[in-house]
Design a protein around this nucleic acid. Sequence first.
DNA 1: TTGTAAGCGTTATCAC
DNA 2: GTGATAACGCTTACAA
Lengths: 345, 345
Amino acid sequence: MGKVNIKSIAAALNLSPATVSRALNDSHEVKATTKERVLAYAAKHHYRPNPFAKHLKTGKTNLIGVVIPFLSSPFFLEFIDELYKLSLLQHYTLLPFQTQNNERTEKEALDFLIRQNVAGIIISPAFENSNTELLKSIHYDHCPVILFDRIQHDLNTYKIGIHNSLETFKATEELIKKGRKRIAFLCGKDIGNAKDRIRGYKNALHNYSIPFQKDYVIDADYQDPTENIDSELKEIFQRLQTADHMPNAIVGGTDTLSIKILGVLADLDLRVPDDVAVIGFTNTNLANYLNPALSTIRQPTQQMAQLALDLLIRLMEKQQDRREIQYDDFLLGATTIYRKSTEIA
Amino acid sequence: MGKVNIKSIAAALNLSPATVSRALNDSHEVKATTKERVLAYAAKHHYRPNPFAKHLKTGKTNLIGVVIPFLSSPFFLEFIDELYKLSLLQHYTLLPFQTQNNERTEKEALDFLIRQNVAGIIISPAFENSNTELLKSIHYDHCPVILFDRIQHDLNTYKIGIHNSLETFKATEELIKKGRKRIAFLCGKDIGNAKDRIRGYKNALHNYSIPFQKDYVIDADYQDPTENIDSELKEIFQRLQTADHMPNAIVGGTDTLSIKILGVLADLDLRVPDDVAVIGFTNTNLANYLNPALSTIRQPTQQMAQLALDLLIRLMEKQQDRREIQYDDFLLGATTIYRKSTEIA
DNA sequence: TTGTAAGCGTTATCAC
DNA sequence: GTGATAACGCTTACAA
């Protein structure tokens, strides 16, 4: 069978392409009967509009680019999943990309998205101020950009995240109240929100007059959660153990690290929570099945996704120069769940 | 600044659009100096080719559609992740879609992919023979389709999976050898590979003269792993308990169920492995950190992704009528890891 | 209410 | 080597 497009439909029905186009787009200026004829024929012959032609003409797409560090982290996975569900309802199509915390890969993803002429972009940057100039030029001249999760970024736009310093403050405080004073903090190197999370941790120590120890802030450098950083972590803690300087509590600053640390501690024959209590950021129900069940700080991914999409759509529809808009930061509340790993007798 | 496209470059350099196009495509029939001039100008003005125009003209894309039941299952996540890495190297772009085990959603995804004019599709169908006719018409008339994981499907194409019956046979046999005889099997309703997995389980029972019991095959009907089927499972096992017919071992037929069952058993105050031993399909390192560490059958996602992409590219490049190709099935080996949950004293 | 025609950015087929 | 020109499938003034 030949290809079925507007021209062939027009020919078959003795109409002009313009009328067919109008009928397919449910224009009010076309007779009801013609509309029916066209629609019936189109359905019968499985007409599929060619988006390339359409977009070439209109210059618009219903694509939304989503740029995240990686999928293999429960938080980002949940976020994307929520976003999928929501965008489906609004007839937007998601184009997800991973950066592996790498600025170059991020740039390539952004370039690709622009070539695809996406209508908007939702991003959690590879690291603090990665691709700042590129993102600014996209946001100002091409399509709106919204930041989430890693919102430490000079791009002037809506930012959706949680109150990172507050959350780590509370978690650290909880450990202190339970009598632990040698508290370590795990964080990803250069990750956009690490600073805030460390600040909360430091403030809590300060509030309870516990001296801050530099070697208790443990930077892990990873591009990918599936990477084997376990041995790196193990070495660090082994060194602390040897120096008789082992912490008796740990705050996990990222999804990935919070889970990995349990395996590391088990390897070192340290009992959780007796020897070392653990609490960390993590968005997975699996935390409850871990050994021991892990206390977690859980980000509200559903809310975050909803808000990101709403704000983005609002920006996409607005004609105003995006340089001149007054943007707000949205800091949502996280949910902390205390489980076995912080249950100190 | 005005838009920079082939025409504007041509105007600025006093060339024709045709020459510019040739230069950008590194055609040999264009003078080296002109080529340089064009490339320099393009780079300086951040020229980005418009894929919509290009594809409208050539009718070809470098897009690969990937259709999976859901992302929130470790196996599919790993698979997609591997596919991302590999396709990046080959300059293909992935368009991933989830079906939630729903034929209608799957159809919408496939329709979308065709409209996007993807060069090929890799799919694990929503269930056995879902969208058979549509997939056939796509494969024969539009672009090659490759099946993976859930390969019980009438579509005649390359199929990549594991030897499901063999793997469940071995797992069941192991439990039998450890003295367990009341062995239950968990599986997703209608999922394409459930039949084979059940067959392996049955064969093992048969080989050791253990009578097959119908109520030990437990169907769980879920659209999404994050769904709350825990209570459903709990009820089923509670009923078995009451009837004094509780199994003392369980084989988990899917990623999702294998993990969930641990929580259910804990809720029912059953000890693993003492009261009930558990082994199941699951592609996550987290299995090692679960309570207790879960024995797993792990699919070779990296190999599967590599093979899927290789075969797809081969088909995309071949001109032959796809009805007439002789397709093979590829059954790769899985890796079974025995951990605490099957450690029977 | 419908038709005509131009044009979106690119590539391919001719000429020159 | 390079330049005109048509064409891909669609939308949209403008005309009728």
